[in-house]
């Protein structure tokens, strides 16, 4: 069953583009990645789904219910972590966490205590005394303490140290195993590649790819590294070229025979051809598009 489904969802800010005719479908129980650079429309999509902003046209359903008509019902089962954690600055972390639970009319004290323990939240401190990372931790507790059916996380790891990031993803994977659906928006592709089953790529407000992370990674493009020469052999279409003294590395998406022909007779001392990681594909994708626009 689809837990999130959008139909030609569009949001315009006056003349500015937000998102354009987005058709997205996320299944219950998935660990879903939402990829795009800053300004691509990730947050706009999420904020529309949560009812913070109203769609210009199109519609969306969460848990099979319309996001506008069943707004409150839907929010009761969602845990949301915004990209920037902002709370009432004079309240303590403890008060914020309790307020969040009360707003949900739930007693989540046991789970809140567990989460605070694991993340090392200093509950007695006022929000204004907390660093960005520590505010993020409070935000995590608020998003997860009521054990929501759907977690929507907007660039959740910025400001968290690597150890905390690991703990955070451990918690998310445990939740996911227990049946929660996770929607993770990020521009850090390794995060998506490591954790997500499926992912959508959004670019300039439009959905450009929606597939399993495995399939997204398995494209025709190869990372070719050649030693002994420092320029891309003539006749090859290469992007993301890195050349150094005595070696060159590039992404190549043409046919293999053409590559072999181009390499024949060159003074190559060593070479590797590997599957690019998601990050490279993403770059490849964007570079190609940019090139297309330039022409």
């Amino acid at each position: 069953m689809s837990i999130i489904e959008t139909h030609r969802l569009t949001k315009k800010y006056g003349k500015y583009r937000g998102i354009t005719e987005l058709d997205l479908s996320i299944e219950e129980g998935e660990f879903f990645g939402f990829i795009g650079p800053n300004g691509a429309g990730k947050s706009t999509t999420i904020r529309t789904l949560l009812g913070l902003i109203k769609p210009t046209s199109g519609s969306a359903e969460i848990f099979g219910k319309d996001i506008i008509k069943a707004h409150r019902e839907i929010l009761a089962d969602i845990g949301y972590m915004p990209s920037e954690a902002n709370f009432y600055s004079t309240m303590t972390a403890e008060e914020i966490i309790k307020l969040s639970a009360r707003l949900r009319k739930r007693d989540c004290s046991a789970e809140a205590a567990r989460l605070c323990e694991r993340l090392g939240v200093d509950r007695k401190k006022r929000i204004e005394e907390l660093s960005l990372g520590n505010k993020k931790k409070v935000s995590i507790v608020c998003a997860l303490q009521h054990e929501p059916r759907l977690c929507i996380l907007d660039e959740p790891t910025s400001g968290l140290d690597p150890l905390m990031q690991k703990e955070f993803f451990d918690i998310l994977r445990e939740r996911n195993k227990k049946g929660s659906t996770i929607m993770l928006s990020s521009h850090i592709l390794s995060e998506i590649q490591k954790n997500c089953d499926r992912a959508a790529i959004i670019k300039e407000g439009r959905l450009t790819a929606l597939d399993s992370v495995e399939n997204l990674s398995r494209t025709a493009a190869k990372r070719v590294t050649l030693h002994g020469i420092s320029a891309v052999p003539g006749g090859l279409e290469a992007v993301d070229v890195n050349s150094a003294e005595g070696s060159v590395s590039f992404l190549y998406s043409g046919g293999i025979p053409k590559l072999i022909t181009a390499l024949a007779g060159l003074d190559i001392t060593d070479m590797t051809v590997t599957e690019p990681d998601l990050e490279e594909i993403f770059m490849h994708y964007y570079e190609k598009e940019k090139g297309g626009e330039r022409r």
Binding site: L52, R72, E73, L75, N86, F87, S100, L103
Partner: peptide, 14 residues
């Protein structure tokens, strides 16, 4: 102004 509306309004309150 203090960006707390996002916190408040993503809870199940109309």
């Amino acid at each position: 102004k203090e960006h707390t509306a996002e916190f408040l309004l993503t809870h199940p309150v109309s």
